[in-house]
Design a protein around this nucleic acid. Structure first.
Lengths: 200, 200
DNA sequence: TAGCGCCGTTAACAAAAGATAATTTAGTGG
DNA sequence: CCACTAAATTATCTTTTGTTAACGGCGCTA
């Protein structure tokens, strides 16, 4: 079974033809991090510009609304990056909390350190680009689902595409990611059982 | 009054210290494009990897739902880039239509040509990065509004932040971008007039 | 194993949104 | 200036969601 480093080295080779042997300067600056269930990785108001590749586990990014309720923005799992976008992109304190839903293994790097490395090693640049584009595509896809689909349709699609994830994560977080309350999600599930079990 | 080229040159200087005199290789490959009101820039199913900086005007990206209704994903206006993300990021035919809502002036480049230029002129790389991050931040912000706010709150915020835009664009497109029907937006407006004209 | 807390479900009611159609308003072109 | 068309509003009715609270299951711990 491969480690994060293996995965990323492979990606770097595929994207830019960089040989694993030549990735030392990049990985020398990374640190492995372990989080236990329910441990916060980044808290609200923090100014950390840490960037981490998730080797194992699920992390939830959420914010506390004015009324005190939580709203889950997104879930990230193994093979993806996690970071405070407020802080990395806009240099603002994080408005979100990033918390492990399971035991999590991360490979972490400071974004400012990464920028320095990229200056001296532009051959790693495709990696940054790849992940930025991947995240953009992902978030546009979620956005699309909000303007084209009903909550029930969004849930059906999530089940179809990420069944494993839905089963790993408590329903209430799924609900809030869909933009509805847990009560409403429960009703949707009921409707799906009784009426059409049929597809998309 | 500045042109697109002025704007981008300034940005390149600010981001990477590239002097305007040294941007010729980049701008040599760009083409100015004019669209008239209601003209499509990219159609559904197209494989165009054109990327364009909007110098003037508003473009709407929308898709046709299964039931035949349109759903507006986003609006883009002067100072922003427009491109088929399906095609550029995933090399898939565009699922969206990009259409001018007003007369539009663009500065266009082929993305594959841009990639070639970036290979020989890595000093332009910060520009790509800047816009990718900007777009990511934007789309995450819209996503955030869907999980934290009601349609009425989203509309109030849009009014507060982009009043000019709301006034340039027909309500029905605003409605669908908010994830609701035009009828529903009209009711929200009515509620806002009668009851609390007040803030947030 | 008894008690506790969290989570998903259910219920009852209020509020909001969807669907459809009619009506008014606004903008365009002759 | 009128006529035509598209957009926005209003009305009516149905469906869905929000809100609040109660209930039951499940795991955890004392």
């Amino acid at each position: 079974m491969g480690t994060s480093i293996d995965t990323l080295q492979e990606l770097l080779f595929d994207l830019a033809g960089v040989l694993p042997a030549d990735t030392a300067p990049l990985f020398a600056m990374t640190t492995p991090v372990l989080l236990e269930t329910n441990e916060a990785y980044i808290r609200e108001g923090e100014n950390s510009r840490r960037l981490a590749f998730i080797e194992q586990g699920v992390i939830r990014a959420y914010t506390i609304k004015e009324n005190g309720d939580e709203a889950t923005l997104l879930l990230r799992w193994e093979g993806q990056f996690i970071a405070s976008h407020d802080t990395i992109i806009n240099r603002q304190p994080s408005r979100f909390i990033y918390r492990a839903l399971e035991p999590v293994k991360l490979l972490q790097i400071d974004y400012d350190v990464l920028e320095e490395i990229l200056k001296t090693h532009p051959e790693y640049e495709p990696l940054r680009n790849f992940f930025l584009m991947k995240m953009l595509a992902e978030s546009l896809k979620m956005l699309e689902s909000f303007v084209t689909q009903s909550p029930e349709e969004r849930y059906r699609e999530l089940l179809a595409e990420r069944f494993d994830l839905v089963n790993r994560v408590p329903d209430k977080y799924i609900a809030s990611m869909l933009g509805i309350t847990p009560v409403s999600l429960s009703r949707i599930r009921k409707r799906m059982h009784t009426k059409g079990k049929t597809s998309t």
